[in-house]
Computed example of a mutant assay.
Amino acid sequence: MTAPRDPFFPADKSIRASAAPIDVRELGLVDYQEAWDIQAELAAKRATDEVGDTILVLEHPSTYTAGKRTQPEDMPDPSNPVPVVGVDRGGRITWHGEGQLVVYPIIKLAEPVDVVDYVRRLEEAIIEAVRMAGVETAGRIDGRSGVWVPATTKAADPAAPTRDRKVAALGIRITRGVTMHGLSLNCNNTLEHYGHIVACGIDDADVTTMSLELGREVTPADMVPPLIDALERALAGELVVANHSFGSAPDPSKGLRKRPKA
């Protein structure tokens, strides 16, 4: 089956502007602002071909990041000690922290730039990696980005949420044809901090982790090799986007005004 709409490029064709190997950099635990600065520098250089395509692989200390469509009611209480950083990606507020695998592809996309196809390919890579690890029902909810586990799937750990639940989130920005930001996959992180926000503006579903779903410890390091392999294949068109949707729901960012700049 094919993507939700026909992409600009054939599904089996690369959407990268370059055929050169991608430089994958594993950075460990990095402060959010520091990682953002690294991304911005690389993206500017990639736009002028000073560097090649790069994928940053890391974790962040506990941080909330508020995308451009974040609403006041999404935010944590001002007394919450976890810092909130306003960012230039799409979407609303989410949380990052240790135990969560974060991947930032800095990729120059082929012309014409197809944002929808890029997002679908990121999702396809995550779905592939998550299913290979054992969460075999992971898929999409039409109208909402990211990768989800359906309510009909019973998690191995009884402490896991039981509604439809997001295991991986996406938030991107494309400037001068170069991608920034990317994806986060919950591995063995706490879910405590999600309870203080309306994560991604969604209050009718939950979030989960690989560890809760599988009933065993799954670390970010465990998921790096399969996820990066799947991501490289998805961008190259070797892993073709398929229809993994199991439901539909309203887009939580549609029609909302952008977050006022600080």
Rank of each mutant, 00 (worst) to 15 (best):
A156W: 01
P161C: 03
R131F: 09
D53L: 04
E136P: 00
I106S: 03
G90C: 03
D114A: 07
P76R: 01
V130Q: 10
T54Y: 06
A156S: 11
T94A: 06
L58S: 13
T94D: 04
W148T: 07
P61G: 10
E73R: 13
D164A: 05
T94L: 04
V149P: 04
D114Y: 02
P161I: 02
G67N: 09
D74G: 06
E98Q: 14
K68R: 14
R69G: 05
K166P: 01
V87W: 10
G143P: 06
P83W: 12
G91K: 10
V119G: 00
T137D: 15
V113E: 03
H60D: 01
V82C: 00
S145I: 02
E123D: 13
P83Y: 09
G86Q: 15
S79V: 14
T152V: 13
R120F: 11
T94Q: 04
A168V: 09
V57A: 09
Q71W: 05
L56P: 05
D142F: 01
I141V: 15
D49S: 13
D157W: 06
V135S: 06
Q71A: 08
A66V: 10
T70F: 03
P105I: 04
I106M: 05
G52I: 08
A169F: 11
W95F: 14
G90V: 00
S79R: 12
Q100P: 08
R131D: 09
P61E: 10
L122E: 07
R69P: 02
E128T: 14
K154L: 05
A138E: 12
R89P: 07
D88Y: 06
G97E: 05
E59W: 13
T65F: 00
L56A: 12
G146R: 10
K154Y: 01
R163V: 00
S62T: 10
D88H: 14
G99R: 12
T137V: 08
A168C: 14
T153S: 11
Y118E: 11
G52C: 08
P72W: 07
A133P: 02
G86M: 14
D117A: 01
E73A: 15
I93E: 03
V103W: 08
R163D: 13
R89I: 02
E73D: 15
D74R: 07
T153H: 05
P78Q: 08
V102W: 12
T70N: 10
P158H: 07
W95Q: 06
V82Y: 11
T63G: 05
L101M: 05
T152H: 08
A160C: 02
R131C: 12
I141P: 00
N80T: 12
P76Q: 08
Y118G: 07
V84F: 02
V147S: 09
V103M: 14
R92T: 03
S79P: 00
P150F: 04
G146E: 01
G99M: 10
V135N: 05
